[in-house]
């Protein structure tokens, strides 16, 4: 598993999750977002188009990250969830908590202002 982070010219901080997001690596993702928040980033997209599966710790990490981003006046969007991954969000009703877009580009276009 690896995360790749890029910042586009529109001020969107895009993190791609490659592999799995599970108990063994969720802290890395939380740390990456925390670091970006401290650097002043406020608009985040986490993209799962290259992700195999997510466990409940990974879902929990996303919940924590979302809360932290909102507390700092930021916004977080998710993208690239295939049918299987999306089912995890639906089963846990987390699809009601997150703004989810089909692609990272659509997610980036969804930020206000």
């Amino acid at each position: 598993m690896a995360f790749t982070a890029t910042r586009d010219t529109g001020g969107i901080y895009l993190i791609r999750v490659e592999g799995q997001l599970i108990v063994g690596n969720r802290q890395e993702l939380k740390a990456a977002v925390q670091e970006a928040l401290e650097s002043g980033e406020r608009r985040f997209v986490i993209d799962f188009s290259r992700t195999g599966y997510i466990d409940s710790s990974g879902l929990g990490a996303l919940v924590s990250i979302s809360k932290k981003v909102r507390e700092q006046g930021g916004d977080l969007r998710l993208s690239g969830l295939n049918e299987d991954l999306r089912s995890l969000f639906e089963l846990t009703k987390l699809d009601t908590l997150f703004a989810i877009s089909d692609t990272a580009e659509k997610a980036a276009g969804g930020f206000a202002g």
Partner: peptide, 14 residues
Amino acid sequence: LDRPNGRGLFLIRQ
């Protein structure tokens, strides 16, 4: 919903 844990067993059952 915004609790970071407590979904594991529920998810398995689903």
